[in-house]
């Protein structure tokens, strides 16, 4: 499996660390309340189909990236830097 790092190009999956769904980019405010924080930290969908998740190019450039992929077909559809996803709300 290879992931398209926006900085490095296609790289072997073993260079990356997997984090989880990109919802982690939406950090609640400190006083958002227990439910919001519980959702943010613990509750995840388990989609059959397209999903966006976070990977760290740990053995490469160090970029956190948002990868769009399909959990059914295993297709990798694209990736953008987490930094840009955060700044612009862009979708991979």
């Amino acid at each position: 499996m290879r992931l398209p790092c926006p900085l490095c190009g296609d790289r072997d999956r073993r260079e990356f660390y997997y984090q989880g769904h990109a919802v982690m980019l939406e950090r609640p405010l400190r006083d958002a309340g227990a439910n919001a924080w519980d959702d943010y930290l613990h509750n995840r969908d388990n989609p059959a189909g397209e999903t966006r998740d976070l990977w760290h190019h740990e053995a490469g450039c160090g970029a956190w990236i948002v990868v769009t992929r399909n959990t059914v077909t295993h297709e990798v559809l694209g990736a953008i830097l987490a930094e840009n996803a955060k700044k612009t709300g862009a979708q991979a």
Partner: peptide, 17 residues
Amino acid sequence: AGQVMKHLDWVSQALRP
């Protein structure tokens, strides 16, 4: 050390760009 480095990358890039 590795976990903290990854975490600092995460915070600086993804949470506090």
